[in-house]
Design a binder for these strands. Structure first.
Length: 271
DNA sequence: AGCGGAACCTGTCGGC
DNA sequence: TGCCGACAGGTTCCGC
């Protein structure tokens, strides 16, 4: 579910709300969401002060007063919710962190794909290790991007979903960025031109910046930590718009399947 | 190495 | 109303 704008929104809100708070205790309601040994999870976190929360790709990394980190991934339906301890639980709460300010931080996840993992060595984390450029990385240019993908015969859509190339894009923003750049999602990565890549990188940065400004896209599950919705769904041009008319040329938006996932495009604008 | 498909889980929606 | 298949914002693993 959450892509870069949603994860960054959550990180910003968590930073304001829980940095400098201390975890008094935690309660694990579903063992499987803890990656690794869940038995010592609560014990390790007890009395830890939250020092910093940052985003890496779609991962959320918490640092503490002790010498370890908690790496969280929300996958499709994971969320963090902040409540008063007196408030009642939700159906899909999986882990609850009780804070010393009378509030509780909840990790909630309908589908249980999301994970929380304690690590002592961040640089050895298999997921973090594989992440490619951040979209705003100065090293990400049309030339370096082309060099990285030149041996790939897969569609550009699939390439953009690969977190080891650019970290943070997902199914919504890839469709939106390719529409903005007027590039057909089925175009093979190794046949894209430098001019197209330049345009694509500009579109990616533009769309992500705008989505971040509106606190992400709430279509079904994504919510902010106070359970409010993001608002970028009101600005989507193609995602989920099959059968509707294109805002640029008025022809019909199409939905196709690539690698078992939906892709949305305007067949006329994105020839 | 690169690629496609299944698997991980739960819920919702549309068709019959 | 009930059942059944398709689908959902992500990633990893397995086999070719």
């Amino acid at each position: 579910m959450p892509e870069l704008p949603e994860v960054q929104t959550i990180v910003d809100e968590l930073t304001n709300a829980v940095v400098a708070e201390t975890i008094m205790s935690c309660r694990i309601l579903r063992d499987s969401v803890i990656q690794g040994d869940s038995r010592h999870f609560g014990q390790i976190l007890k009395n830890q002060r939250i020092e910093e929360i940052v985003r890496k790709g779609k991962y959320i990394v918490f640092s503490f007063s002790g010498s370890f980190w908690m790496v969280a991934h929300l996958k499709m339906t994971g969320k963090f919710i902040l409540q008063n301890q007196s408030e009642s639980p939700h159906k899909h709460d999986r882990v609850v962190f009780y804070l010393d300010n009378g509030r509780k931080l909840i990790f909630n996840d309908v589908r249980c794909f999301g994970r929380l993992e304690l690590v002592e060595d961040l640089s050895a984390h298999s997921g973090l290790m594989k992440l490619g450029w951040d979209p705003w990385d100065n090293d990400l240019t049309a030339k370096t991007f082309l060099r990285k993908i030149r041996s790939r015969s897969i569609p550009i859509k699939t390439t953009l979903l690969d977190q080891s190339v650019i970290a943070g894009l997902g199914n919504i923003y890839v469709s939106e960025a390719l529409f903005d750049a007027a590039i057909n999602p089925t175009l093979e990565a190794n046949s894209i031109t430098e001019r197209q890549v330049s345009k694509l990188l500009r579109s990616i940065r533009k769309i992500l910046t705008l989505a971040l400004k509106y606190n992400g896209t709430s279509i079904s599950d994504y919510r902010r930590i106070d359970e409010k919705q993001g608002m970028f769904q009101n600005f989507l041009q193609v995602y989920g718009k099959e059968g509707q008319s294109c805002n640029k040329c008025a022809s019909e938006i199409a939905k196709i399947t690539q690698n078992q996932r939906s892709t949305f495009l305007c067949p006329i604008c994105q020839k």
